[in-house]
Write a protein that binds this DNA or RNA. Sequence first.
DNA 1: GCAGTCCGTCAACAACGCTGACATATTTGC
DNA 2: GCAAATATGTCAGCGTTGTTGACGGACTGC
Lengths: 176, 176
Amino acid sequence: MASSDHVPARTPARTRSDMLLFLTDEQLRQGIELMFFAYRDFTSDPDAVLAERGYGRAHHRALHFIKRKPGVTVAGLLDVLKITKQSLNRVLRQLVDDGLVRSAEGSRDRRQRLLSLTEDGEALERALSEPQRARLRRAFSEAGPDAVAGFRLVLQRMLDENGREAVLRLVEREQR
Amino acid sequence: MASSDHVPARTPARTRSDMLLFLTDEQLRQGIELMFFAYRDFTSDPDAVLAERGYGRAHHRALHFIKRKPGVTVAGLLDVLKITKQSLNRVLRQLVDDGLVRSAEGSRDRRQRLLSLTEDGEALERALSEPQRARLRRAFSEAGPDAVAGFRLVLQRMLDENGREAVLRLVEREQR
DNA sequence: GCAGTCCGTCAACAACGCTGACATATTTGC
DNA sequence: GCAAATATGTCAGCGTTGTTGACGGACTGC
């Protein structure tokens, strides 16, 4: 009796089951593992560059989003990264001290620090993102445009429902 | 001279450029950011469960791959996780002490520890993976089978070239 | 018997999250 | 003008999880 739940007799078994084969626990497990392995390799290139300078992933993220939106404030970065200001500040202080990030007084609100990359900062950001872009470019190119569209769609639907709008706005628009 | 490499003149410019639009730096940046945001949300569910017990992601990974292949040895886990034995051992010791992982003497080679989950371990593994599976199931379902195929293809092509074969064998085959 | 392998462990360190508390400057609301 | 709210910085401490280096015991293979 339990085995026939939700399987209407009139629906051809083949159609119904074929359509949902990609939702089996086995397929989900494969997706979970692929996310783990792909993300690990995806971050390995910048990690290697960062390690040479004694930096970590947090530095990369800060550099990325400062480059992305020069003049961003600390609060703006906190919104995007969703970490504590203490964690972010530790990283920012290093980057400013090391001359990779410039910190200007806000014009409208002088409490704010408007962050931007120095030339050295731009250089490191490029060194970090270049291999990552190369990896993704190759993957995209080998997989083809349709696969890339699917890749993006699935990642979008994996985002938290609250915050998805904001993330998609950030990712897709809000060009510098 | 360099700019015309691999661009046969007889190919209509429109076709060629349209086909490569998905490889622009802008598209790559979006892909990079989507990976960051999606992975962050993807891991947030298990992270919350883990935090309640004082565990971290490393514990989740160990539980996952032990469940996946009961009887796996420490060396086998190290191969998959690509971390140091010291890091893994710290986590394994806790899991064994807490009664989540069983450690049996190897029959063929008695130096080996054959790892498997206890009932409690199975329960925690389910509690960890269930919300993650639910998230992926919803994303897959909303995106549809073709998108899922693209998602998987791109992730596969993002893997390091050396090791890709092994990872794909692990992910797609080698059922328990 | 001996080299090599598998595993466990001690010690130390770094990156990077976290909480909590507190200081300071600035802006905003009334 | 003054109080409250805001933006930021900073100190101190903690936990997870990665790292290197070193060492020892148990076992296997030849």
